[in-house]
Amino acid sequence: MRGRVIVACGSGVATSQAVASKIARLLKEKDVDAEVEAVDIKSLKHHIGGASAYVSIVKDDTDWGIPVINGVSFLTGVGQDTELQNLIDALRG
């Protein structure tokens, strides 16, 4: 089964696209099949349905009912391995 990951930032253009691209590459390297989609935070509620996990780059306290992964780790590299494993676990869940 193919997982679906939503990555959201404030504008949905630069940061979320960069993180989504990096996550897609890292997942591919780990042989994890997933669709990774970048969106802006304002349209998140329209895209999150059916997602396996949400990678958050901006603060959002909404309970989406799916695992939330710290997207800042993919920007800075700090804690990236842990967050990548959390994402993989959510997708394999």
Rank of each mutant, 00 (worst) to 15 (best):
V13Y: 03
G49R: 07
I66W: 11
G65T: 14
A20W: 10
A8P: 00
L91F: 06
S11G: 10
V36S: 09
G50N: 08
D60H: 05
K28H: 10
G71H: 01
I88E: 01
R92W: 06
D33P: 05
A20L: 13
G3T: 02
G50K: 10
S11H: 06
A18F: 09
T62R: 11
K28C: 02
Q17N: 15
R4I: 05
V58C: 13
D31M: 08
K22W: 00
V68C: 11
V5L: 08
V72K: 11
Q85C: 08
I88L: 04
D40P: 05
T76E: 11
M1W: 04
Q17S: 14
G93N: 13
K45R: 11
V55D: 06
K42P: 01
R4Y: 06
S11E: 11
S73Q: 04
D89P: 07
K59I: 03
S52H: 13
L75C: 14
A14I: 12
N70K: 13
V19T: 02
T82L: 12
R25G: 10
V55R: 06
T62E: 15
Y54I: 04
D63H: 03
I57E: 07
S73L: 04
A14V: 04
I69L: 01
A38P: 15
D61I: 07
V19I: 08
G50I: 03
E37M: 07
H47C: 13
K59E: 11
I23Y: 12
S56V: 01
I88G: 04
V58G: 09
A20G: 13
V13H: 04
A24N: 01
R2A: 10
R2K: 12
V58D: 14
R4K: 15
R2H: 03
A38F: 02
G12V: 00
Q80K: 14
L44P: 03
K28P: 07
S43E: 15
E35A: 10
G3I: 06
K30F: 02
R92K: 14
S56F: 11
V68P: 03
S43G: 13
E83S: 00
Q80M: 15
T76S: 15
G79T: 13
V58P: 01
L75Y: 00
Y54M: 03
G50P: 08
R2F: 09
G49K: 06
A34V: 10
G10S: 10
A38Y: 05
L44I: 13
I23A: 12
R2V: 10
V39R: 06
K42E: 14
A90T: 09
A24Y: 07
I57A: 00
H46C: 00
A51W: 05
F74N: 14
Q80T: 06
Q80A: 14
D40S: 15
V7S: 01
E37S: 06
G71S: 04
T82I: 15
L26F: 12
D33L: 09
D33E: 10
S43V: 13
S73F: 09
G12D: 12
D61K: 11
A53S: 06
Q85A: 10
D81Y: 03
G3S: 03
D60L: 05
W64K: 07
E83H: 08
E37I: 15
W64I: 07
S73W: 08
E83M: 06
S56G: 13
D81E: 15
R92F: 01
E83G: 08
Q80I: 12
C9I: 02
V7R: 00
